[in-house]
Nucleic acid binder design. Structure first.
Lengths: 207, 207
DNA sequence: CACAAAAGCGGAGGCGCCTCCGTTTATTAC
DNA sequence: GTAATAAACGGAGGCGCCTCCGCTTTTGTG
């Protein structure tokens, strides 16, 4: 899926199959953008007409590009994963490795918050498109591994853990239903986890 | 479907919880009746408004009785199972036991044909209402057992099989997707199965 | 029977889904 | 540049979902 022409998903589609007419590509991008924000704020059952409206295109255009709601959901989902993974590299480049890891986990939590709503819709997708999940979950854990290994390597977190441990530790996030306090609690969990990871590290960033 | 007027599901609801006003009960019955026939001919996604129309009631009435499509589906489904099980007893009383068994299996096939379409909707139901399945499948296998045991007992079918064998043999029906010839093939399967069951029976009904 | 309260009715109305097709815009060829 | 063709646009229209609430019918009580 074109990991990066100019960062993420928007332009990628151009190179992908048929060279789509420029207006078509522009509209498609707008739709994805609009869909991401509308899904985020109204949930997965948001009105497709609102998405079209917000993208400034007709409803017909939306349907031409995305014949079903699920198609649109999938694209948005993939885009989010893409962004999350790209963030790993950027954070690693810009921050001390433990901070990068912490920040990335924070974003992961937000991402899960989105996906939570998508769950039902994804369930449907998974029956049709089974590559989707293995595909993306592989990418996510790879991104996490990169961060964890870097932090272990330079001693900002303890050495006796690996990426799958951390992923497991984050797993607890799923359990909480959609209570309003869910987000806060998850953040606390991330902080707690980071404290644990930093404890007993070879050295700390700012002694 | 209505296996016959005053045996089954229609009237039962009255006694079940609150003694529903007579007009309400009448409308409810009409709705179930209409739903059964509309679902049968248009599939599970049939318009609820058409059901209301066919029942001769307003759409509001439909929604008052059945707040969601799934509620309505469940009632229809249960009613069908009820009919199928009741048929076992009646067939046993009116026909030689092997003929009763054969006829019942034929009806079972038709029932599955209906359920096929319902599958998706039922999947949703099952997450909510998990008694439904165990409940009904128990009933069905009990009905089958009754027929098989009777036929074994009077020697019209071979003695080395039991109800679960037969149910298993019928299981193959599920495998076929929704080809148009599906129904015919299933009938042939039933016939074949019956021949196998009669073969080597202690005696046959009409020597 | 009469009357009030409770229960139920039904359909208008607002919204979303999705298709269809006449119009517009980009692309390609000259 | 212009013309021809293909690609894409967009929104009207038809249908279904579901809620809401003023009206009707039943039921209980005397």
């Amino acid at each position: 899926m074109a990991v990066e022409p100019s960062t993420i998903a928007e332009t990628k589609t151009a190179a992908e199959e048929k060279p789509l007419r420029v207006d078509a590509q522009r509209n498609r991008d707008r739709l994805v953008e609009a869909a991401a924000s509308v899904f985020a704020e109204r949930g997965i059952d948001a009105s497709l007409e609102e998405i079209a409206r917000r993208a400034g295109v007709g409803i017909g255009t939306l349907y031409r590009h995305f014949p079903t709601r699920e198609h649109l959901v999938e694209v948005v989902y993939r885009r989010e994963v893409e962004g999350l993974c790209a963030a790993a590299g950027e954070l690693a480049a810009r921050h001390p490795s433990d901070v990068a890891l912490e920040e990335w986990m924070r974003r992961f939590v937000d991402y899960i918050a989105t996906k939570r709503g998508l769950a039902t819709s994804l369930r449907i997708l998974l029956t049709t498109n089974s590559t989707l999940f293995s595909d993306t979950s592989g990418r996510v854990s790879q991104a996490l591994r990169q961060l964890v290994e870097a932090a272990v390597a330079d001693g900002t977190i303890r050495g006796d853990v690996d990426a799958s441990d951390v992923l497991h530790a984050l797993g607890g996030i799923y359990s909480a239903p959609d209570t309003p306090e869910w987000r806060d609690r998850s953040r606390r969990l991330v902080k707690l986890l980071m404290d644990g990871l930093r404890f007993g590290a070879g050295k700390s960033v700012k002694a």
